[in-house]
Amino acid sequence: MFLIASTFFAIVMGILIFKFRMRETREPVTLKKIILPPVFMSTGFLMFTMPFFRVPWAEAGEAFLAGMIFSILLIVTSKFEIKNNEVYLIRSKAFIFILVGLFAIRLALKWYIGTTVSYLETSSLFFIVAFGMIMPWRLAMLFQFKKKQNEIAI
């Protein structure tokens, strides 16, 4: 039951992320819009204060590394352009395919790992994977954004 509910929730979240990402390309990018998502997400680490969410350090490291590897695809498809002296995120045609592909891989891994690891530990691991994806991606976006802002200032 948990597996089905979490899969449904993941699909809904995937759709919301896609819609948010598409809307994001219509408005100028700001520093806040880049920095706040990982900051807000980092509060999820509070789950590890509860013993049943804890996972071994090696598994946490592997999950974070997997997220960092997945983030490469997001970094490659996130480009900025200058319009009317403001920085905009360019809509990538590959982004939807990458997002769906990463989602499918994540879902398949979750179903596979969920057969051997408890539901709460699986949730912890996939939170770490997600954070491992968003952190490098947003840092790369931050550097690209600052570069474009410097181009405007020149």
Rank of each mutant, 00 (worst) to 15 (best):
I75T: 07
T7N: 02
A94Y: 11
I15K: 00
V12W: 06
L125V: 03
G67R: 05
I82F: 09
L120V: 07
N84R: 13
T115N: 12
A5E: 11
Q144I: 04
P37E: 11
K148Y: 13
N150S: 06
N150H: 02
L36T: 10
E121L: 00
L125P: 03
F97V: 03
I17D: 05
S78K: 05
M68T: 11
V129D: 04
M1R: 09
V55R: 13
I105Y: 05
F2M: 12
S78C: 13
R26Y: 07
T77P: 01
F9P: 00
F143M: 14
A104D: 00
R26V: 03
K83I: 06
T77H: 03
A140W: 09
I34Q: 06
R106P: 00
A130F: 15
V117R: 07
T115K: 09
L3F: 13
Q144C: 02
V39Y: 06
A94I: 04
V12I: 15
K19F: 07
G132N: 07
I69Q: 01
W57H: 06
F145K: 09
M47D: 01
R138K: 15
A58Y: 14
A104K: 04
I15W: 12
G132S: 09
I4A: 05
I4K: 10
F45R: 01
S6I: 12
F127R: 03
A140H: 09
L65T: 14
I128K: 04
T116F: 15
L102P: 10
A108K: 04
R21K: 08
R21F: 07
K19Q: 15
I90Y: 03
M13Y: 14
L65R: 07
K148I: 05
L139N: 08
P37Q: 10
P56K: 04
E24V: 00
V29W: 05
V12L: 15
A66P: 00
R91S: 13
K147T: 02
S6V: 13
Y88F: 15
K33T: 10
F145A: 03
K148E: 11
T122D: 07
A153Y: 09
A60Y: 02
S124W: 02
F95Y: 15
L142C: 02
E27P: 04
I90Q: 13
K93S: 05
A66D: 02
T122Y: 08
Y112Q: 10
N84P: 00
F97S: 09
V87Q: 03
I105P: 00
I72M: 11
L36A: 11
L89A: 13
I152G: 04
V12E: 10
F97A: 13
F40T: 04
K83T: 00
N150C: 00
I75V: 15
V117E: 12
W137Y: 13
T115W: 06
M135T: 15
L3M: 05
A108T: 12
A60H: 01
K19C: 00
I69M: 07
K148S: 01
F80T: 08
G61M: 12
L109N: 11
E27I: 12
I15F: 12
I105H: 02
V55T: 14
F95Q: 05
Q149Y: 05
E62P: 00
R23N: 07
K110R: 15
I69L: 15
